[in-house]
Design a protein around this nucleic acid. Structure first.
Lengths: 356, 356
DNA sequence: TTTAGCACTCCTCATCCCCGAGTGCTAAAC
DNA sequence: GTTTAGCACTCGGGGATGAGGAGTGCTAAA
């Protein structure tokens, strides 16, 4: 059977009605919204065909039709009109983008929060890429006979520091020597290599100094391994409680628990694309098979990508969500990109405001 | 009318039954659980008195009794037995306490998460105290002709750093001079005073250098003002969906939204106490009047206090929650306190593990 | 003061039935 | 061949009804 233009139009009307009302759509209602005027009986014939073809479903014999995942997929791929954002919407998003995002630590979770607020669905945010971050430079600052400050600057120009305490004591000269050693031998390498070299040095270095060295390396490892990357932030989970499909507390609880616990299993868009929409069963995760996910990515610096995803019912307003999310992600990319290339892309220009 | 011991015992039985079942408790059920054997009719007489005195309520004439807030209050103050934690429970909490809490940034939210997991209710966490944090020491490290690293150590020994970029360029000598100036004139003072002194210097300092100076001060202000203090973290909100009183999605949504949005209005225990229990209408916040809140505090360093609060139905298991929360808070206090006093209390001992 | 007995209340749950929206099918019209 | 009107049918939603049962209050006796 063929998918005539009229069938497509009917499908579109059904989906858009269902998106806004969450209730099965009947033939009469469709007839009144169609561009060409036909009777409801004609629509019914078409609807029967669409059900047969798998684009629509019927909750029971005498109910209207609701879209199937296949129907949503066609809608998203072909029928959905690129929704133009209203001036008000763009302004709202721009305002959100102007939020001071000072440190990378914080940007990602903030982005998730704003995405959730933007679309009124739960959102998650994470960073991906740069699995092997390395250290670019070390500084050790003497504080007193037993403490010093370790300052570590990573390859991607983030700076982290911590007060460390050596039980054996360290003086300023030792720290200078140690910093030289670190900068010479412990830059540009990954964690395993660091530990290997540390082992090598264990015999050649005086005990107290080695203590201090390994302390610093230990801290360094925590910096390059930890941080915001790998972490997933979820927000706006409360939004799902407003949706009729989650009025059942058990369902809502299931999804929420999944989102906060199984953070590793959330969908990630394929490399090279900026946005992906996963509809219902297209999700690999069992817990998401009744929901849809829209994920957008933005660029942070050279080798790192931020991800913002939105989770909602399959009846999600794809056009609006996709439009807002992609505009927002583009804004984020621009925000990171527009910085002076010599400057660390993760840091704001000097003019930026400071208040939190 | 007098509150006889038997009345108290009955009240206690009613409350404990209601806590575990969430259903009105009848006279027969009470009779079977009382220490002295009396008939249900006797209980009914007593119940009628307790209702009259305001300790119990009756949903409708022929239902059992449920506790009123006044009843819960009496229970919490007098009747509730200090619940001893089982070995398993203490072990569980101890395990949670061993989680690596490396930086103050993170400890507070982590504490909230663990509290939520511990009691299966939504929890919030925040820090209070030290409104006027000041800077103890500055270091400026030259990176290239236009960038440098600012390292700021606060009075409470936290160290923060950031790569800054001066449009006008700075060399190492200038940075040294600037650092000396900062350490001489910008330590131990609060934000307003900082800005005042900065103003004073604006005319006396060469333009480019002043740019760099104000940039650094700007960053410093963001450090001492921002950070984890003042922020409130909420977690475990999904827990309420398991409770029968929140099966109604609207109620659950109302509470959840309140907890994520109105974070400033969450209850704080009065100074000088370690724990407070607020029952139903005792909460000032409108949105919390049907819920109870248990808040415990722990000490972080000298002039700072961490807060963990748990929100649940008035039918909350006060004995267990209070016991776990206070044990947990004590553990946190100890964890911060046991550190070498010379060492920054917010940082782990050198032996601590590093993996995240 | 306590207890047994009893009538009464009121919620819960299951059943039933009506109503209406919507369908599928058929036969006529275009 | 396609569209339309007509009509019988289906099925869920919602209100009415009634039995069952847990629990109460009251009274009178122990």
């Amino acid at each position: 059977m063929e998918l005539t233009p009229r069938k497509k139009e009917i499908l579109k009307v059904v989906i858009e009605n269902y998106i806004s009302t969450a209730e099965p759509v009947g033939s009469k209602a469709i007839a009144s919204q169609l561009s060409t005027k036909v009777s409801s009986a004609t629509i019914r014939n078409e609807l029967a065909d669409l059900v047969e073809m798998g684009y629509l479903e019927q909750p029971h014999t005498s109910a209207g039709r609701i879209p199937s995942p296949k129907g949503y997929r066609l809608y998203v791929n072909e029928l959905m009109e690129q929704r133009a954002l209203s001036l008000q919407e763009t302004e709202e998003i721009n305002k959100a983008l102007q939020m001071k995002m000072q440190e990378l630590d914080g940007v990602i979770s903030k982005a998730g929060q704003m995405a959730a607020a933007l679309v009124n669905y739960p959102a998650y945010a994470m960073a991906s890429g740069t699995p092997g971050l390395t250290v670019h430079r070390y500084d050790l600052l003497s504080v007193d006979e037993s403490s010093f400050i370790a300052v570590v600057m990573t390859e991607d120009s983030r700076v982290k520091s911590r007060l460390l305490r050596s039980e054996t004591g360290v003086d300023a000269d030792q720290l200078t020597a140690l910093a030289a050693l670190l900068n010479a031998q412990f830059t540009g390498i990954d964690e395993t290599e660091m530990n290997r070299r540390l082992m090598d040095l264990s015999s050649k270095t005086p005990g107290p100094l080695f203590m201090t060295l390994s302390l610093t390396i230990e801290y360094t490892c925590s910096v390059i391994e930890g941080g915001e990357r790998n972490k997933v932030y979820t927000t706006g989970a409360n939004n799902i409680l407003k949706l009729p499909e989650f009025r059942d507390a058990d369902k809502a609880h299931e999804l929420m628990s999944f989102m906060v616990d199984n953070t590793e299993n959330l969908p990630v868009p394929p490399a090279g694309t900026n946005m992906e929409i996963l509809i219902g069963p297209e999700n690999v995760n069992e817990a998401l098979r009744d929901t849809s996910v829209v994920v957008a990515s933005y660029d942070i610096g050279d080798n790192m990508r931020g991800l913002i995803g939105v989770v909602g019912p399959t009846r999600m307003d794809y056009a609006t969500v996709a439009a807002r999310l992609s505009y927002f992600a583009e804004g984020l990319t621009k925000m990171f990109g527009k910085q002076d290339p010599k400057q660390d892309p993760m840091l704001p220009g000097p003019k930026e405001e400071q208040k939190t």
